[in-house]
Write a protein that binds this DNA or RNA. Sequence first.
DNA 1: AACCCTCCTATTGACATTCTAGAGGTCACC
DNA 2: GGTGACCTCTAGAATGTCAATAGGAGGGTT
Lengths: 112, 112
Amino acid sequence: MPKTPSKIDLLQGTLDLIVLKLLRGGAANGWQLTQSIQAISRGVLDVNYGSLYPALRRLEARGWVAAHWAPSENNRRARYYELTAAGRKQLEAERASWERFSHALGLILQAD
Amino acid sequence: MPKTPSKIDLLQGTLDLIVLKLLRGGAANGWQLTQSIQAISRGVLDVNYGSLYPALRRLEARGWVAAHWAPSENNRRARYYELTAAGRKQLEAERASWERFSHALGLILQAD
DNA sequence: AACCCTCCTATTGACATTCTAGAGGTCACC
DNA sequence: GGTGACCTCTAGAATGTCAATAGGAGGGTT
């Protein structure tokens, strides 16, 4: 079996941030989200359906996204998610949190 | 109560990297590790004992660190951990992984 | 029309890992 | 004997992995 050093497991807690950010650009269904994630991260990030859909429900339950059924571009039944106002705030909070965290970890990694 | 926006929950999976990196600078006990983490991250990162010691056992079980009891600087009994050769390799692997991940997430966050 | 195949999209469940929270124990030093 | 340094443990929650299942649409074939 060939080495596939490309895929990386998601770090827990970052999926919500990713989804919120992508929805910031407009409503999307689950499948589109997985495609965007792969495309934008250039194949590094890859989301299981088994992670994504529970995450979307979570976000919906917390009022950060709203969902409705509608036909997809290919005329299949799809559930579209979009950011709520609360979701936009949450996005900014999580983004800030991520930045603080990754900066702090950067400090540690570059400590002599 | 004063705002303390300072503490951040660790992202799962990053504690091992942090510990390995700190041990790269020489053997240390659990207490010293918590102090270093706080100091270097300027108070942003903070590790529970309930996370740290299990992590150290994990790393030991996997052969990435070796441990022994020895008196601490304050003459208390302390368990000192140090990197093994395998641990050094693991550190580089996890560091690379972190960098790939955080770069990919950066791409997503800055996507238009 | 009836059939099948493939692609798109969603759902679910069994399981593992790692974190949080917080209590408690021991021993040295002042 | 109090305080600070240091370790251990349990219980629980969150979130991820993997892998299986479901079903409708479009298109081709008979």
